[in-house]
Design a binder for these strands. Sequence first.
DNA 1: ATAACCTGGATATTACACATCCAGGATCGC
DNA 2: GCGATCCTGGATGTGTAATATCCAGGTTAT
Lengths: 159, 159
Amino acid sequence: MNEGVEWALHSCLNLTWVDDGQAVTAAKLAAFYELPAAYLNKQLQALARAGILTSTSGPRGGFRLARRPEDITVMDVVAAIEGPEEAFRCEEILRQGPGGHEDVDYRTTCVISQSMRRAELAWRRELSRQTIADLKATVESRFPYTPDSTRSWFANLRT
Amino acid sequence: MNEGVEWALHSCLNLTWVDDGQAVTAAKLAAFYELPAAYLNKQLQALARAGILTSTSGPRGGFRLARRPEDITVMDVVAAIEGPEEAFRCEEILRQGPGGHEDVDYRTTCVISQSMRRAELAWRRELSRQTIADLKATVESRFPYTPDSTRSWFANLRT
DNA sequence: ATAACCTGGATATTACACATCCAGGATCGC
DNA sequence: GCGATCCTGGATGTGTAATATCCAGGTTAT
Ligand code: SF4
Ligand code: SF4
């Protein structure tokens, strides 16, 4: 599991707490957790390509959420960062074994592959149930002053 | 996801098809898929430590299943190879952020961490539902002559 | 006694995640 | 227009973990 997923989710949450319509610089988002700015920027670009964030160039530019938090699932973010590939990559070792054929796609016929795929589907389904809005609501109910303190932290940030 | 998991599951399946009470050498199991023998041996050792296989030293030694296939879940094998760690390792970046405390275990309080953990639980539950016996049965119903051909392949193997 | 085989630590190799850098382009304020 | 700000994306460097090999030692069957 890529570490960038964690950064991306945190950044999305932080974006829900800044003033609406306000774009936030990659450098500022990185500064919040003291992350390497250039590298976080890459993750944000991936989120932008996935349609989760919109990016604006130039002064007063930066990133903002492309949709409402209710419409962004945790799975969306994970997929944007990790790529569309499945975690279980079947190496099709059956191909090397006796009775293996070059022209068979073992990923679809093989039992082990199917079993892994089913488990991964359950994982994805669970991540799709949760939205950024859900996370936001849970945080706010547990730490009611997080929105205010986050907003003011970004507002008072000196570069 | 470790590639050794695939090897281990295949090897367990193959072991269900050899004559009962017959131990199979790591080298033979590796030869079946042309895998690196020394490395597969490491995975088999892990399975032995986990109580999934029993190992016998000396001539006529090797590995055999420690329990009935019905009593070995796919999750057992995955856990034996991958170790007990969770796939989502929370780096607790909140600790670096404003308002972070040294003495808080963010892995338990944090919403993101919980969300990931829940998804991973669903994944594990799904893998625990399937046993080696289930895989075996599915393979045999699709490819009825696999047990015979596998058994005879091992029997006729020349080193 | 000898050969077959597992055990486990040390070591080499390789792939990939992590991280940085820079040239280019867009946008804003002046 | 001009300079400053900031995103874009490819090239590149770095470090760590997965992959793979090796060997010295222990166990067991014949
Ligand atoms: S049997 Fe399935 S899991 Fe194993 S190598 Fe073939 S496709 Fe992959
Ligand atoms: S908030 Fe949660 S996921 Fe993020 S660093 Fe803290 S514990 Fe980890």
